[in-house]
Structure formats: structure tokens, C-alpha cells
Design a protein around this nucleic acid. Structure first.
Lengths: 299, 299
DNA sequence: CGATCATCAGACGTTTCAGATATGGATCAT
DNA sequence: ATGATCCATATCTGAAACGTCTGATGATCG
């Protein structure tokens, strides 16, 4: 069976044109080198060198082999390097998912941008979807990690790492009586308003949190409408159909026709951001990505 | 040091997803296979498999390596095959030289054509030149074999193999008094003619043979002109400047204005064709070429 | 929930083979 | 002729690749 050793020795002898010198270069003695060359010739079934009184000389077959052997030995090194780079996460594929409400958080976009820049050889694909869809995609291996909001129920076997908790703000129509003030209102002020919230199944966590906070503030919110996606709720608010409570990071979007107001009396109300992934100790591109998320958490 | 063994084992385990099954497929036991995989991982510096309760699974680094390893193992086989094909002469380079007078012999052209057809992967280059030039090129390695005419003097160290001896014919101007008869004349009939022969240094053999044959026929030829190349002599004959003696195979060329006549009284006069080459026992493309020449000799 | 099965890793003995040393034989230069 | 150079052959040694046995671990099933 041909081994790389044979090819390495062959290359040395071919380049030196000299068994003894090649042996020195390889750090072995001449006889074993002669043996290995002979073994290679036996494997190939053809003589690769012409033995001359002064050194050796490639035959036609040897010349043909030499060209290919150079490439093969180079390819072996390249393959190992590529594997190492992949392990270090400088190369590979990375599929990241996020819920609609997480898409606008500066941490998410900045981490994605920084990752793409730091590891240009990592093919980074992004996918938006409902939390339950993301969890399923994660479990099926279609995603490597996903930014989700509330603690996920069916997440057994997945690692769900809390990243941060951002405040929730009230989104009001611009013409609303509470808009345009100090920018700070009390949740209780909204007790009589029509609420527009995202539909339950796609994001169970935030919905429940908002209801609970209202209860704590002394009223049960009247939910007039449920929108399929977080962004849609803002459109409905802008249209004047009601008010909503959204994560702070969404305040930077859809400002036309919407006024945002901080909530003073809702201490327990927050929008958590989690990163979910499959393996306990991910390495490679995913590991680097997660590490980068953790670093950004401090900002 | 990484060996092909490691890569072959790695491929088997990766494809089976199972150390024990891979070991069976490889015809070895499981523990040594585990060891070799571990050794490969140590060489690469990264873990290539994730050990599961049921089999093993490639890591990202392993997946990257797998793709390359497949190509490498295939390339090794291809390289060996290519070397074998080169040795058998189905591939490679072949530089053949020939003197101007040999270029028109049907054996030369048919062998070249047949070789090109039978071994399309052999790059066959042809070069015309004077005999001494060819010998020098042969010795310098610029040519692999050369068709030459007469026994070469400075051919020590070269193999000069006689291929055939063809008759010489007289080339006469069309209007010549001897032309247009039976097509057979006697050499002695030309005793008063002006002779046009090729210059000596480029082809020493034929010149001497002609002079000797004339002497044997009872006269010493009057050489009126010497042409630098064999083909040129025919042009001069066609122009009516004299007669010449040329190898029979040249009679198929330059027939405008030239009449050829066989010689009845020149038994010893012939144009030998030799094939010269460097090595005593050439193999590969050259070996096949020489064998083909020998076969064609019978025709 | 314990027993069994499957799978991988580790320890140890054996064998194989790459490599070292010594020697022989051929060619070339002095 | 003689020494130098270089490759081939013969024999020996040591490392490592392989085999067998065993242990550990997690999954499956009654």
C-alpha cells in the first residue's frame, strides 16, 4: 500500500537526483531510502528512476508521477490547514435565526456584522421566523443558533442562554393624548386603551409578560387585535387602532406616526433575549459566534 | 507525520459513522482503528469526530477534511495510473527527428501517423534537420529518436538500428535523352552527365555511396553542384542543371519536370534508413514507437 | 428500574516493517 | 591500478501498528 512516506521520499530523490543526498535531506540513511523507493516502484509496477553511475534520473513515468506528487503533498497540507481553520471557526457555514422582534436589536445586527467581517470565509445565512419555527429548525439542524425572546417551553435538549433583558416601551399613535409629554407614562394610564399585541403561538413569552404586568398595575388589558408579526403591530398602532407594548429596541423603527413612551411602573416587565443552540460546548464558527455574542452583552 | 493510512481510515470511519463497522470494512480490529483516528486528530490538532453513544459523527473540521481527503485519495490513484500509462507509452512526450530525405519515405510517415492515432495522449513533435544536427540533438536530449540515412560516424553511445535499405533511382530532367524510355537505365549511361548531389557534411553517407557506385560502374562522376538539402537537388534537376541519384521514396515528390529511372547496374547502391536513439532498452512512448517502426519494416 | 446489548477507549503482548549498520559491486577519476 | 563515489544487498534493531482482552458508558427492553 502506497503511503505518503513513499511520495515524500520520492520527491526528495527526484529533486536531488541523488539517493544519498536525498537521504541526508530527509534525515535517514541511504539504504532504507533505496528500499522505500524500490517499494514504491513495486507498488506502481514501473521503474521510476534510471540508476546512473553518478546519481539517479527520472524515467518518463517518474516525471509524470513527480508532477502529481507535488500537488498531492501540497493538497494534504492544505486539507489539514483547512480543517484547522474550520475548527477555529474561520471557515464554514453558520445559519442563524432570529424572531422578528430580535432583528432590530443593535446587539444582533452588530454581532452579525462583526462576525461577517472577522470571518469572511464563514458563509453566514440569516433566517427570520417565529420562535417555535426557529426552535424546530434548530432541532432539525437547519439552524445553528437562534435569537429568541422568552424562555422557550419545548426547548429540552437545547441550550438556551440568556443574553440580556431590555425594557419594554409603550407605542402610541402620534395623536394620542399621552403622546408628546415627558416621554414617560405609567402603565396604569393605559388601562382603558385598546391593546394590539402579537399573536400568541408565534411568541408565547412576551404576550404573557405584558398581560401579567397589566394585572400587576391593576387592570386587565382589552386586547382589540392580534397581529401576526411584531412589526405589524406597529403599523396598526400608527393607523390609530390602539396602543402596544414593544421591546425598546423596536423604537428605532417605524417612527412615522408613532410615539414611544417609557413605562415608569412596570419593573418586572422586560423583553428577554436568548440565544439558543444545540450542543453544550460548540466549537468552530458557532463557538466563535457565541463568544462574540457574550462579549457584546456587556455593551 | 500524517500518512495515507490515516486518511484511508478516516474516510472509512467518516463514511460508516461507526468505528467498529469501519474496522470491519478495513479488515482490521476496532481498537487500532480508534488509535489511528486519535493519532490523526493529534496531528491535525483538532478533534475530527464527536463520540456518540451510537457511533461517531463528524465535527465541522472533520467535514471539511473529509471533502479534501476524498480528492486526495482519488488523486493518488490517478497519479499512479498516469505514471503507469506513461511507462506503457500511452502518455508523454516524444520528439522524433528525421533527415530531409527520410521525410518522404512511406514508413516514416505511416509510423508517425499510426503512433499519433494509437496514443493520442503522447505529444509527438517532429523535427527535420541534417544528420549531424540530429545526432547532436539526440545526444543533448532534445530528441528521443531520429531517422537518419547512412551509418553515422560520431554515434558512439547511441543505438543506431538499421531499418531498411531502399533502392536509389536516377532523377533526370524531363527533356533528357534518357528520360521517357523503359524507365530503366544503366548507371554507366550517366558517365558523361553533370551530377547534382547533396552537400557532404549534412549527409556524409549517401554521397560516398554514390561516388563508390559510379566508380564500380567504371567512371568518376563529375559533380557540377552540391545542394544544401536533398529536396533542393530535385529542384536543380527539374531546372535542367544536371542529373542526380536519390532514394526511391523521393520519386513521389517533385514530379513536375523530373523523370525517374531505375538503375540496373548498381547492386551495391542503396539508401539505408536507420533509427537512432539514446538508450539501449527504451521503454514508454519511445519503446512503443520503436516497436512500431520494427513492425512496419516488414511491409 | 435493573439487565442486557452495543460501542468506544485503554492495557498489554505480538508481529511487522521502517530504519540503522556493515558490506559488496560498479563506475569514474586520478 | 587505486581510491572515491554511489547504489544495492544482507542482517539486525526498535518503534509502532495490529490483535486480544477488558473496562466504562450510555441506550434499549422487558
Amino acid at each position: 500500500m502506497i503511503e505518503l512516506r513513499h511520495l515524500r521520499y520520492f520527491l526528495a530523490v527526484a529533486e536531488e537526483g541523488h539517493v544519498t543526498r536525498a537521504a541526508e535531506r530527509l534525515g535517514i540513511q541511504q539504504p532504507p531510502l533505496s528500499q522505500q523507493i524500490r517499494a514504491l516502484e513495486r507498488e506502481v509496477g514501473e521503474s521510476l528512476f534510471r540508476r546512473l553511475p553518478r546519481g539517479v534520473e527520472l524515467t518518463d513515468a517518474g516525471r509524470t508521477l513527480l508532477e502529481k506528487v507535488r500537488l498531492i503533498l501540497r493538497d494534504v497540507d492544505l486539507a489539514v490547514d483547512a480543517a484547522r481553520r474550520t475548527a477555529r471557526g474561520e471557515q464554514g457555514r453558520l445559519a442563524i435565526g432570529f424572531t422578528g422582534s430580535a432583528a432590530f436589536h443593535p446587539l444582533v445586527s452588530s454581532v452579525v456584522r462583526a462576525s461577517r467581517q472577522a470571518s469572511p470565509d464563514v458563509a453566514l445565512t440569516l433566517e427570520e421566523g417565529g420562535t417555535s419555527d426557529l426552535i424546530e429548525a434548530l432541532r432539525a439542524g437547519r439552524l445553528d443558533a437562534a435569537f429568541v425572546r422568552a424562555p422557550v417551553d419545548g426547548a429540552t435538549g437545547l441550550v438556551v442562554e440568556p443574553i440580556l433583558i431590555e425594557d419594554m416601551v409603550a407605542a402610541l399613535p402620534e395623536q394620542h393624548r399621552l403622546a408628546g409629554g415627558t416621554g414617560r407614562i405609567r402603565l396604569a394610564d393605559l388601562s382603558e386603551e385598546a391593546f394590539i399585541l402579537y399573536r400568541r403561538p408565534s411568541g408565547p413569552g412576551l404576550y404573557d409578560g405584558i398581560i401579567a404586568a397589566c394585572r400587576a398595575a391593576g387592570f386587565s388589558p382589552r386586547v382589540s387585535q392580534e397581529a401576526p408579526r411584531t412589526v405589524s403591530t406597529l403599523s396598526l398602532v400608527a393607523a390609530g387602532l390602539g396602543v402596544s407594548i414593544v421591546p425598546e429596541s423596536m423604537a428605532r423603527l417605524e417612527t412615522n406616526g408613532i410615539a414611544y413612551a417609557r413605562l415608569d411602573d412596570a419593573p418586572g416587565l422586560g423583553a428577554p433575549l436568548h440565544l439558543a443552540y444545540r450542543e453544550a460546548r460548540p466549537g468552530g464558527a458557532l463557538g466563535r459566534f457565541i463568544a462574540r455574542v457574550r462579549e457584546s452583552r456587556g455593551d
